[in-house]
Simulated scan of single mutants.
Amino acid sequence: MTAYAIAVLRPTAPVHPEVLVYIERVQSTFEPFGGRFLSHGKSGEWREGERLGDVVLVEFPDLERARAWYASPAYQEILPMRTAHIPGELVLLDGVPDGYDASRTAAAMRAAG
């Protein structure tokens, strides 16, 4: 099942040189795990709530490969270049299976509750 790495980042100007190195190298860290950018550093159109930051969305074939990417020596080597200079959050998130129907989830919640 597809999984995602979702980061909400709050960069500040000027961009620190280490951040540029991180950006130059990050894509090569997730490609061996089947990862690919779906969105990179877009501010988006926040329709509800307040704007939290810029969004980065990376798709992986499954949660195991997303976890393996995050724990990989290649990513761990460059991670401090971003975290030292850009505050934010990152979550690894499992997708839903093909044929997912939210109404079934609501029915299960109703039955449990």
Rank of each mutant, 00 (worst) to 15 (best):
A5T: 01
A7P: 05
V8T: 15
L9T: 12
P11A: 08
T12I: 10
T12Q: 15
A13I: 04
A13R: 12
V15R: 14
V15L: 11
H16F: 10
P17F: 15
P17T: 15
V19E: 11
V19R: 15
L20V: 09
Y22E: 13
I23T: 04
R25Y: 06
Q27Y: 03
S28I: 11
S28H: 09
T29P: 06
G34F: 01
G34N: 10
G34K: 01
G35N: 02
G35Q: 06
G35L: 08
R36M: 12
R36I: 00
F37S: 03
L38Y: 00
H40Y: 02
G41Y: 03
S43H: 11
E48P: 10
L52D: 02
G53T: 03
D54G: 02
D54V: 10
V56G: 00
V56A: 03
E59A: 00
F60H: 03
P61I: 04
D62R: 07
L63E: 14
L63Y: 04
E64V: 00
A66T: 05
W69M: 02
Y70G: 06
S72I: 00
A74H: 09
Y75A: 00
Y75D: 05
Y75K: 05
Q76Y: 03
E77C: 14
E77W: 14
P80V: 05
M81N: 04
I86M: 08
P87R: 04
L93T: 06
D98M: 02
G99I: 10
S103I: 07
T105W: 12
A106L: 07
A106P: 03
A106N: 01
A107Q: 09
A108T: 11
R110C: 02
A111F: 11
G113F: 05
